[in-house]
Design a protein around this nucleic acid. Sequence first.
DNA 1: TTGGTTTAATTGTCTAGGACAAAAATAGAT
DNA 2: ATCTATTTTTGTCCTAGACAATTAAACCAA
Lengths: 302, 302
Amino acid sequence: MPEIPAFNIAAVERDTGLSKDVLRMWERRYGFPTPGRDANGERSYPAEQVEHLRLIKRLMDQGHRPGKLLAASPEALAALAPKRKPVSDDASPDTEALDALLHHIRQHDATGFQQAMAHRLARQGLQRFVRDTVTELTRRVGEAWEDGRVEVFEEHLYTELTERLLRQALATVPGGPQQPRIILTSVPNEEHGLGLLMVEALLTLEGAECIPLGTQMPLLDIARAAQAHRADIVALSFSSAFPQRQVAGLLSQLRGALPPGTELWVGGGGVARSADSAGVRVLHQLDDIAAALAHWRAGHAA
Amino acid sequence: MPEIPAFNIAAVERDTGLSKDVLRMWERRYGFPTPGRDANGERSYPAEQVEHLRLIKRLMDQGHRPGKLLAASPEALAALAPKRKPVSDDASPDTEALDALLHHIRQHDATGFQQAMAHRLARQGLQRFVRDTVTELTRRVGEAWEDGRVEVFEEHLYTELTERLLRQALATVPGGPQQPRIILTSVPNEEHGLGLLMVEALLTLEGAECIPLGTQMPLLDIARAAQAHRADIVALSFSSAFPQRQVAGLLSQLRGALPPGTELWVGGGGVARSADSAGVRVLHQLDDIAAALAHWRAGHAA
DNA sequence: TTGGTTTAATTGTCTAGGACAAAAATAGAT
DNA sequence: ATCTATTTTTGTCCTAGACAATTAAACCAA
């Protein structure tokens, strides 16, 4: 194992996702981490502690509390059971096929995964593929990551390959000017684009015109884009990793900046348990999309 | 114009890219911005000042200095000339065709842009398309954004559509297990993926095996991915927007974490003027790729 | 004038600890 | 056991100072 240079606090923030404020506060309050100091008196974290912080972050995403995690010994942490909110596991579709797909990812077999996915897409058609396969697979990858059964780079590989497949499939669906016109994007610090692509696929199949603007658009630019493209709807995606406490303020801010006639739809794991707020339509599941679209069309029968 | 709720400091950081520390420091030092205070005594920025801060940030990216910008009146700012480092504008290829492509973006004509680009790709072939058209177009879009001639959402549209086209073109190039095996990714906070895609296209055409891991991989995960995939090379992309001061430390950290036999290649506008450091190969232009690949192969003739 | 070196100004990031509101857990009451 | 009230936990924001790294200015030599 090579010698890894020590991390300064900015590098730890980058690699763990824990803000500098939180890192300093934990040190003060719980006595961990315990960085050394460099020649300038600034914190210097050994790689080992950065790893430990990443483990803690992962366990927090599962629902554990920092107070317990930071007090516990490293051994105790490893033994922690996944503390997950119960998921309705009613309909268990062909579990075996999904397991086989995941197996390719675990083996780092990009080619095999792509072939298997392409095969499944051809058999199911785009709509069922998105609603059943990709949704379920993404959920499982997320869970496996939280449990430490899948590495970050394996999840990234899954995401990248699946996005490619979806984009490719989308290119074959005829687009052209249609109604309604829907802008698809996400807010800054929300980098997950797979959900957006899934939504785009379903919307395009339903005959809407999608304007994909990628991820991470500043709010004021979203508002300008809506105006410039004369969009009927702006659709945002929030992953479950997005800081919950920011969502509400963000949405009211965007709602205020958007032209009044433009609808604002939001979806994804980050808003799953949010209630509807004024002027914002929360889509709790992918299946809500068709209904929402029908509702819009009913109200805009030109 | 609707009433936009005021921004708290976290929202301003999100939308401007200026850190909270910088926002407070500017206020203290230069007397701008001048946020109000909410009921809790916390800063509350009117939308108008957020806009102004974004203008300042853009001008800074052009090379202007904060001290001047923050002292100047809004009118004076608007009159500032683009202060760009001279670009060797020797070979001016078919300027007209590129202008036509850009025109589609300015008109928000996604369909027209896609068709024109696809047409050009078919005529030039993937290699020339990447090296001439996409490179030059991306440079122009970047410049136009810095000059305020292109909105953020227009740049995002350009990026998204071009990425789609490249991915689609890439899918038609046969992959399979080849040599060398190259991991393509970027570090956290580096979200620009278009450069990676261009590199991937060129490398794949040269017969290398690319493992695309998307953007924003924590350093320790890059190292693990290199090991798990038995990669020969890790290639990183840095856009010119990436904070220069972080690059050096970051590379030495990654170099230390990577297996010794794995090469580390970096490229993009963010490292264009960096010198080579120990164990890191800097590719200053896309054209360097073929040579670097040949060099690697010469040293690994198995 | 041009080119290189030293000095001075500028600017971002780090540090310290305090305060408080929102969220979560516990206790208490129906 | 379900609902409400209280207590604990936890993240973010605050002020204000220090310093190193970068950039500009001044200086001198050719």
